[in-house]
Amino acid sequence: MSRPSSPAIRTLIGPGRYVQGAGALGRLGEHLRPLGSAPLVVADDVVWGFAGHEVEASLRAAGLPARREGFGGVPSAREVDRLVGVVRQAGADVLVALGGGSTIDAVKAAGFLAGTRWATVPTVASTDAPTSALAVIYTDAGEFEEYRFFPRNPDLVLVDTQLIVSAPAHFLAAGVGDALATWLEARATVASGSATMAGGLPTQAAAALARLSWDVLWDNALPALDAVRDHLVTPAVEKVVEANTLLSGVGFESGGLAAAHAVHNGLTAVPQTHGLAHGQKVNIGSITQLVLEGAPTSEIRDFVEFTTRVGLPTTLTEVGLRPSDTEELARVAAAATVPAETIHSMPFAVSAADVAAALASIEGFSRRVRAEAGLPEPVPFTGRH
């Protein structure tokens, strides 16, 4: 699962070019042209329905063919292999992911196997997948299977913030959940001296970007979400999109992952959580990590209150579980603590029993914090957003 590393080497990696702003999609062809002459865009039918026309126009204006392939919905080994076959048959030399994190991970994995360059064009700011040199591969049923690592990051990451604000606000909220974990996990990795996903020790630059992502989100997430609900691009939106995508992307990859994402991976092992966004499950992982750390009560309370206001789950109820689900929590904890998991980057040993206890404990604490803050009671998750 982990990239080979040297304990004496510090490493920072990132995308070849990052482009962000309202209307950026219209310049896709301009930025793809230096990368190749035969692009293939991968997008599902929904995404292609609202973005395909502009993509085609931009590619044709740059003298590039406008070819598109559909996406199957889950970045599984089967879907990746299917896309590799399509790429080779089409003779594509640049693979472009247009969509969310699942499409992006599948394209990165397929581009590597097919020997092409690859670019990512996220249509939501819901994960930090667009910038990284790794993909999360799931089973066809949606359970975490493995991380796949690649020798380079995307050649291009292009983010049109006008597209981002056209999507429902819960996508941006999920990205906030994913990005907030970046600093919590980076500081744990720095403290333990563990290797990162980039293949070395954390750099000061990556840790600083992780902390910057955290600070930007605490200052801007709530006004940005208000703006997105009105489909407006504001300075707060631009800051949050950059924090969710670039700052968190470089910050997690070269700063380190720890318990929060391991708990996310564990949560995918129980069917009750299927249908939740990546960042929603990560937020439960972040709270679990804070509990495992024995963080000050005030810090955990502030995190629960803030992320509840963002619209993220802060109780087991909201991810389809209960503290009394001992069998399911044990399964989550076991998956989160397998030998190769990132939870072992914590600066202390963590057992499956520790994780199960921490998970069970957050329900009562979070409910009390929410009640004291006058926030709504948790709504049970039933498999649909």
Rank of each mutant, 00 (worst) to 15 (best):
W218E: 14
H231A: 15
A206W: 00
A174I: 10
A198F: 08
P223E: 05
A221N: 06
L201S: 09
S192L: 07
V190S: 03
L222C: 10
L225N: 02
A236W: 03
A198H: 11
V190M: 05
A205R: 01
V237Y: 06
V190H: 06
E185Q: 02
V240G: 06
A224D: 09
S194R: 14
A227K: 01
S192M: 09
A173S: 13
R229F: 00
K239A: 15
T182S: 03
P202C: 10
H231Q: 15
A186P: 04
L217H: 08
T189Q: 11
A174E: 07
V228W: 01
S213M: 03
S194D: 13
A188R: 09
A179D: 03
L209K: 06
E242S: 12
V228R: 12
A221H: 06
A210W: 03
L184G: 00
M197N: 14
A205C: 01
L180A: 04
G200M: 08
A224R: 04
D219L: 14
R187H: 07
A206T: 00
Q204R: 14
R187P: 09
F171S: 06
V228C: 14
A206L: 01
D230H: 14
L217V: 03
A206I: 00
T234S: 11
V241Q: 05
A224H: 05
R229N: 08
F171N: 06
A206K: 00
H170Q: 13
A227R: 03
P223G: 11
L212I: 00
V216A: 13
T203P: 02
T196W: 11
A206Q: 00
T203M: 03
R229Y: 00
T196M: 11
D230A: 15
P235L: 11
D178P: 09
L180V: 13
A227E: 03
H170T: 10
P235Y: 10
T196N: 12
W214D: 15
S213H: 02
E238P: 08
M197R: 12
